[in-house]
Simulated assay, not measured.
Amino acid sequence: MTRLGDLERAVMDVLWDRFPGPAAGLTVREVAEALSERELAYTTVMTVLDRLAGKGMVERERTGRAWSYRPAASREAHIAKLMLDALDLAGSRESALVRFARSVTGTEAEVLRAALTDEASDRKG
């Protein structure tokens, strides 16, 4: 399970909030500028992005002399993976799913119901 630390999450939020966006991704400097209120050193942001690349959370490519970074997956895909990984930790996936279903709001339950209905329709057709 790829859990993110506070700073990693802040960097990913910048990338997720900007994409779809620049086709070439964001440079370390652009990410650092987006996080300027944190007063982070350029090298700190560079290290975080390098670690995120190592974890497979971001993709990077050379743009001139600098690297540019973009999310490897959407925020929603990342959250869904975390949820599935959490289910794998449960003694009973079914019990965990039932408990989760009972904890969501009415609107969230409707979204889940619609998604399950759509998935069932897709499997039939």
Rank of each mutant, 00 (worst) to 15 (best):
M57E: 15
R113N: 06
M83D: 00
A24C: 00
L116E: 09
D118K: 11
G91S: 14
R99P: 00
G106W: 09
E33M: 06
M12F: 08
M83T: 08
A109C: 00
D50M: 08
T117L: 15
A96T: 07
T2N: 09
G5A: 06
D17W: 00
D122K: 14
A73C: 07
T43N: 13
T117G: 02
D17K: 05
D85V: 04
S74L: 10
G125R: 15
A53L: 02
L49V: 03
M57Y: 00
T107F: 04
R51N: 10
A101Y: 12
D122F: 13
M12E: 02
V45F: 09
G106D: 12
D88M: 12
E59H: 11
G54Y: 09
T107Y: 07
E8T: 04
D17A: 09
G125M: 10
A114K: 09
D122A: 15
D118I: 05
L7V: 09
E8P: 14
A120R: 14
E61T: 04
A34V: 03
R51Y: 09
W16Q: 01
L40M: 11
T107L: 04
E110F: 04
E108L: 03
G5K: 11
A115I: 04
A114C: 00
S68W: 00
A120L: 14
A115F: 14
L82A: 08
L52N: 06
V111Y: 13
R51C: 04
R9A: 12
A72I: 06
G91C: 05
V45E: 04
E33V: 10
R60V: 01
R60E: 02
R9Q: 14
R75P: 01
A101S: 13
R51W: 05
D13L: 10
L35K: 03
S92I: 07
T117V: 07
G64I: 09
A114G: 01
D118W: 13
D50R: 13
R38C: 00
D17N: 08
R29T: 15
L82S: 09
A109M: 04
E30W: 13
E59G: 05
F19V: 01
D118H: 11
V58D: 04
S74T: 15
G5H: 11
L26I: 01
D13S: 10
H78W: 15
A72E: 07
G25L: 08
G25A: 08
M46G: 03
E59T: 10
R29I: 11
E94W: 06
D6P: 10
D17I: 01
G5M: 05
P20Y: 11
K124M: 13
R60G: 01
Y69N: 02
A41I: 08
E39S: 13
R123Y: 14
A66D: 13
R102A: 07
V14L: 03
L49D: 03
L4W: 12
R62V: 08
R38A: 10
W16P: 03
I79P: 01
T27P: 08
P71W: 05
L15P: 02
M12C: 06
R99E: 13
T43K: 12
H78M: 10
P71T: 04
L40G: 10
L84S: 12
E110N: 05
A32N: 13
H78P: 00
V31A: 03
T105P: 06
A114L: 14
D118S: 06
T27H: 08
